[in-house]
């Protein structure tokens, strides 16, 4: 229950941090909020040769309105987003979901970039990023590139980043006019890992028909899982209770393949997926209708 020995570095700039990651060639881990990394080190499931502590890199802590939407430095604490009126205005779905991430004491340290890069299938942020079509700026010492959230998650705790790369910024685009959103999850106790959760976005035209829909699950696969078929069923339709129920049913029966654990078997998870999908689609549709009728 104590971490193994490691070298500790506390760089002050991103370049310095990237230099250290390059120098260790994949044996070093960036330390963001540490709310997932440190437990795995305490269990000795992770034994990195070195930690590159990002907590002293001031240039990674910011939340601002910019090109593309809400721009979020990788080290921005989850609690800062929760308390940000700017985040609430520019990315209400992201803002609404924050209190579902663990507990206040964890969100005080936990970061946006850390959770996105950790790629835990039970985490809220990867699912939100996928639902919002977020883009990530990833840097190495020699290069920088943008990766769309849909290309970023490649499997269980796995991303498209190379070991010497680091996520430095996430951009959450604003939703188009006429959009409604919702996030919900079911956990044994508030703040615990969700047994199942989902984010939904519905964009309605002035005619009341759905122009675009998105539904993304967490905790039912090896990463965030987007239910394309269910979303497509709603496009061009009125989001009636029957249409929403049919879409949620399709998502839960055909688009996910949940595995069981001690808290919930596959059948129960599938049931929860149907329930949660129906809830978030209903709420998103109601918000979209309210937007359109204003």
């Amino acid at each position: 229950m104590k971490p193994a020995v490691f070298d500790y570095h506390a760089p002050r700039t991103v370049d310095e941090a990237l230099g250290l990651l390059a120098q260790y060639g994949g044996d070093a881990k960036p330390l963001a909020g540490g709310q997932s990394l440190v437990p795995t080190m305490n269990f000795r499931l992770a034994q990195p040769a070195a930690l590159v502590d990002l907590n002293g890199i001031d240039e990674l802590f910011y939340l601002r309105q910019g090109e593309g939407g809400l721009r979020c430095g990788a080290m921005t604490r989850q609690r800062s987003v929760e308390n940000s009126t700017l985040a609430q205005r520019l990315s209400p779905l992201l803002h609404e979901a924050m209190p579902h991430i663990a507990h206040t004491q964890i969100r005080n340290r936990g970061t946006i970039g850390g959770s996105l890069a950790h790629a835990d299938p039970a985490a809220e942020l990867p699912a939100l990023a996928l639902a919002l079509d977020a883009r990530f700026y990833v840097r190495s010492l020699t290069d920088g590139r943008w990766i769309a959230a849909r290309d970023y998650y490649t499997g269980l705790f796995t991303t498209a980043m190379q070991p010497e790369e680091m996520l430095v910024e996430a951009v959450f685009p604003a939703l188009p006019a006429g959009s409604g959103w919702a996030f919900d999850e079911v956990a044994r106790q508030h703040g615990n890992y969700a047994l199942c959760g989902a984010a939904a976005i519905i964009t309605q035209g002035e005619d009341g028909l759905v122009k675009n829909a998105k539904l993304v699950f967490l905790s039912v696969g090896e990463g965030p899982v987007e239910a394309f078929q269910a979303a497509n069923m709603l496009v061009g339709e009125r989001p009636t209770p029957e249409a929403v129920r049919a879409a949620a049913d399709t998502a839960a029966t055909q688009e996910i393949d949940p595995v069981g654990d001690i808290h919930a078997g596959p059948a129960f998870r599938r049931h929860l997926a149907r329930v949660v999908a129906q809830r978030v689609l209903t709420r998103a549709a109601a918000r979209a209708s309210a937007e359109v009728s204003v």
Binding site: G34, V38, R109
Partner: peptide
């Protein structure tokens, strides 16, 4: 628990409640 779940080790770092079992002492520098 030493993995951030139980909350028994909660302390304040610059006035905010955090898990002291998920911080290395040197990070409080």
């Amino acid at each position: 628990c030493e993995h951030g779940v139980c909350g028994a080790c909660t302390v304040l770092l610059d006035g905010e409640a955090v898990r002291s079992c998920l911080l290395f002492a040197v990070q409080a520098s």
